[in-house]
Simulated assay, not measured.
Amino acid sequence: MASLRVLIPAAALLAACTQTGVSAQSDGARPFKAEVVADLDSPWAMTFLPDGRMLVTEKQGQMLLLSADGKSRAVVSGTLPVDSAGQGALMDVVLHPKFAENKLVYFSFSETGQGGKGVALARGVLQDGAAPALGNVQVIFRATPYLEGNGHYSGRIAFAPDGHLFFTNGERQKFDPAQDPKATLGKVLRLNDDGTPAANNPLAAKGFHPAIWSYGHRNLLGLAFDSAGNLWEQEMGPKGGDEVNLIRPGLNYGWPKASNGDHYDGRDIPDHRAGDGFEPPKVWWNPAISPGGLMIYSGKLFPQWKGDAFIGGLSSKALLRVDLDGTNAKKGDQWDMDARIREVEEGPDGAIWLLEDGGDSQGRLLKLTPAG
């Protein structure tokens, strides 16, 4: 489909969701203009190459290489077969910190395997040119165990400042695996860049799977480091209780034993409370926002937001900002975007880029720059 370039009418919506002691805010008007750069087929994630071009994944299993202006695109061959039923997809895509030297691209995807389905982590070498491809593609990590079902794969990837790779595994809508020390499901994992468990992970000596960094998570769809090296994560709660967490080594974040939401059938789940042994979220939402991607802003186009977190809202059809202050967080703005927002990324020039999750369009790629 040909690229589109139009401006979305400015509008804003005060967030209806509330949190004890913290309320959502609105500027009353969007402080940005949104340009539609391209229309894609159910895109899931994106990342920028050093020259400003973009790698974008699509749910059904395609990876695309887009020009910096979005006007041209090419399919990147070499990805692996994807089971895209339900929440399955070709998921995250991230460059190795030394991409300029090694050309390594990391991606996650859902697949069918022994025991059912699960999320896998792979990498390949980007071969550029008129027919781009990933060469020497290898699966370097698979979640354990694989289970029946099509939900809560998670699959987000983030490189730490020290070069370690962090990878999220959802609990596959099975609840208990999030507390199972032998399963990687419902966990944040810390790996070497070749997919092997990193040395000195905090729970290995206690009999946990050696890759586990933190546990007690549900569906982890955002993962990012701030400039101080703090690791932030956002995840979908059940009926309410969506969370932003500061991830600390070895801690238990409570799912399914504690949540500020309820089961979908109305059954209560104990709220996070002092002394319960679980790490509480820094920010939470009731009703749900259904958080998509997570980005921590470091650019110059929006200096007032430097160091803040941005979250895509799926069911809330919103872009949300969270004020980060060291290891503390509180709600900032929530802007109505009139579409499900799957991914948020920062461009090389400091623009904020969004991927819509389909709907009226196949799934638009938007570029946000300051209004006026």
Rank of each mutant, 00 (worst) to 15 (best):
G326C: 13
T369G: 00
A204P: 07
S110C: 06
V56S: 00
A211M: 01
Q114R: 14
F48A: 01
L324Q: 11
G363L: 06
T47I: 05
F109R: 02
D262M: 13
P249R: 08
D268N: 15
L95Q: 02
Q60P: 03
L366D: 01
K257Y: 14
G155R: 00
A12K: 05
P31K: 03
L49G: 03
P238F: 11
M1E: 06
G195W: 04
W353K: 00
G350H: 03
I140Y: 02
S84M: 07
P97N: 05
F175S: 05
A133P: 15
R267M: 14
D41M: 02
A12C: 09
R53S: 08
R123M: 13
L90I: 07
P270Q: 14
D338I: 04
A120V: 05
Q62L: 10
D323L: 13
P281H: 02
P202K: 04
L354M: 09
L294Q: 07
V139H: 06
P270C: 13
D41I: 03
G241Q: 10
R30I: 04
P97H: 02
G163K: 04
H164F: 08
L231G: 00
H217V: 00
A89W: 05
G78C: 06
V22W: 15
S26C: 07
F225H: 01
G229M: 03
H209L: 05
T369A: 01
I296E: 05
M337W: 11
S259R: 10
K187V: 04
K103T: 11
G307E: 04
G326M: 10
A274M: 10
G359F: 08
D338R: 13
E356C: 09
V76L: 08
D51Q: 04
F141T: 02
V283L: 11
V105G: 07
P287R: 01
G129C: 06
W284Q: 10
P238H: 10
R142A: 00
S290H: 14
S110D: 05
F32G: 02
